[in-house]
Design a protein around this nucleic acid. Structure first.
Lengths: 331, 331
DNA sequence: CTGTTAGCGCGTTCAT
DNA sequence: ATGAACGCGCTAACAG
């Protein structure tokens, strides 16, 4: 059982009595190899326990079958649902993913893009951490697909949820149900999703002949703490709204924490929120949830990216895929 | 602005009037290069906007500065906290991570190990999806570090929490607080963590002169649904225990779902649980939580792996690092 | 259908 | 302190 050094194409070629080119052809499923030869080569490969050195191949082809994925934060279930979809689809098509966290910092995004390019990834999928995109052009000419949010001043392939309609539909349903006043706890309006969700909410109210009251509308930053504080502010008033729309899951989480802490109940309170995470429907007063197809967003982003990669620089138009949301009625 | 093909060492060498060997030395910080030359080369590198082709380097050195990380599931916050620690530490030391999901299947683990080896990773960090490890030897001789759980019949470097002491301490605290009967909702006893947690619980009871009642002890599979069902079974009885120890976060989640669904309260109920996730302390009746240092587990695993990689096949003893847990008192 | 040959871009002796 | 030359393992022309 003397385990020699790893076998190479050359070893296989010699042992099988063919040329390295033929071995390479078999390896790559080239059609014009005599079936017998294919068999012979494959048998030899088995015998030698040969495994292709993909690094050498990459050097030659300048393709790594590796995609860089940049997410703001791994501990975020929402993002990781997207990544799950990405990985699933990519794996199916023979790619793997280098995952990096941008920690929500622009400079990190820039740095990571450089690192990924150096590592030779075939493309990048990025969940933007901020609303600006100027720095993303450093990815060029590498194929790049944004997920979840678009970015200002940087037209780019992207897969996002239909935030406007999602928010509109939720608010509309609440209104049809008899909501009198719907408060709003939003995200940073510099983010595309935060804007769209607010606009959807606003449009639904107008559509019902209501004008949103300015004091019912609060903006935070999509983080847990901000949801906590804004909910506290809203409910601490003498005349709070009967419905509250919370623009994302993490603010919802914070709001729920506040609500749970209070001894006395809030009769008649109903909460609308974005993102149907496993727990969201168990938060107190949770009533209508806008569900985004998180994994599908990831899958579609992967698909889009691969189509760019595999078709070369064909179509130059940027494509923005907007996925439907659905409503989940809780109580 | 004619953007030529990417510059190579050769281009830099020519432009700087030195040899490629010198450029390579500068690139790798070789001490014996005349300072002037270093400066010159570095300037040229800037001018040409040269970036090293790391694939070519990898082909030569057979080191990729890439680590494979296999987790059972990306949507699991617990695992992703570990991965966060891994990525953080690795990034600091100049490595990046290829992340793959085993979907909790042994065959996937095997397959992924093969894929990672083919991609030339320098080592693998694996969060085992099952209790068996026979198939993991296919990773040899690649450095491999297990995190969170060890595996039967496969001695291996590993970083785990001190499950026994964690469980012991939690149960002990509850008993000192006046708990009369502590029920137990455990995980699959084939898993090392499930066994250790049960043993810690059992030992604490014995230590207080109590014998655990057989009917108070239920085993599930660490998943949400199983927590739901077992909690339902336990609380549906005529004489349920006053304390319940739930052996991991996801079962705790399921149990909480059950509890939340019930109209009538469970006066005096206290829940002990493992893993201090952001929400755990808000679950109903949550009382004592055993917190594992999730990110640190990841960091330590990364450290251990890199020490193996960078020191070559030195020490042959497998090292198991057992990290302390801490107790979090909720109510 | 198959073989020959020439690199891909780098690190590394072995000279000097 | 520096250079010339070879080769890591593979694929891609180009021949035949």
């Amino acid at each position: 059982m003397k385990s020699e050094r790893k076998a190479t194409v050359k070893d296989v070629a010699e042992r099988a009595g063919v040329s390295t080119a033929t071995v390479s052809r078999v390896l790559n499923g080239d059609a014009r190899v005599k079936p017998d030869t294919v068999l012979l080569v494959n048998r030899t490969i088995e015998e030698l326990n040969y495994r292709m050195n993909r690094i050498a191949r990459s050097l030659k082809t300048s393709r790594t079958h590796t995609i860089g994925v940049i997410a703001p934060e791994f501990r975020n279930e929402f993002f990781m649902n997207i990544v799950t979809g990405v990985e699933e689809e990519l794996k199916k098509r023979g790619y793997s993913v280098i995952l990096c966290s941008s920690r929500e910092r622009r400079e990190e995004e820039t740095e990571l893009i450089g690192m990924l390019r150096d590592k030779g990834v075939d493309g990048i999928i990025l969940i933007p951490g901020s609303s600006e995109g100027e720095h993303l052009k450093s990815a060029r000419p590498l194929p790049l697909v944004l997920v979840d949010r678009t970015v200002d001043g940087f037209p780019c392939d992207a897969v996002v949820g239909d935030n406007y309609r999602g928010a509109f539909n939720a608010a509309d349903m609440a209104l049809n149900e008899g909501a009198r006043r719907i408060g709003f706890i939003g995200g940073d309006m510099k983010l595309s999703t935060a804007r769209e969700r607010f606009e959807g909410y606003e449009a639904a109210l107008k559509n019902h002949g209501l004008t949103p009251r300015e004091e019912d509308i609060l903006f935070g930053d999509y983080h847990e703490e901000s949801g906590y504080l804004l909910m506290k502010e809203l409910m601490g008033r003498s005349d709070p709204p009967d419905y509250v729309f919370i623009a994302n899951y993490f603010m919802h989480l914070g709001a729920a924490r506040y609500l749970l802490e209070q001894k006395s109940p809030f009769p008649g309170l109903h909460i609308l929120s974005f993102d149907d995470m496993p727990l969201a429907s168990f938060f107190p007063y949770s009533s209508i949830i806008v569900a985004q197809p998180m994994e599908e967003m990831g899958r579609r982003a992967a698909e889009l990216l691969l189509s760019r990669i595999e078709s070369g620089p064909g179509e130059r138009e940027h494509r923005v895929i907007r996925l439907d949301t659905s409503l989940r009625k809780v109580l």
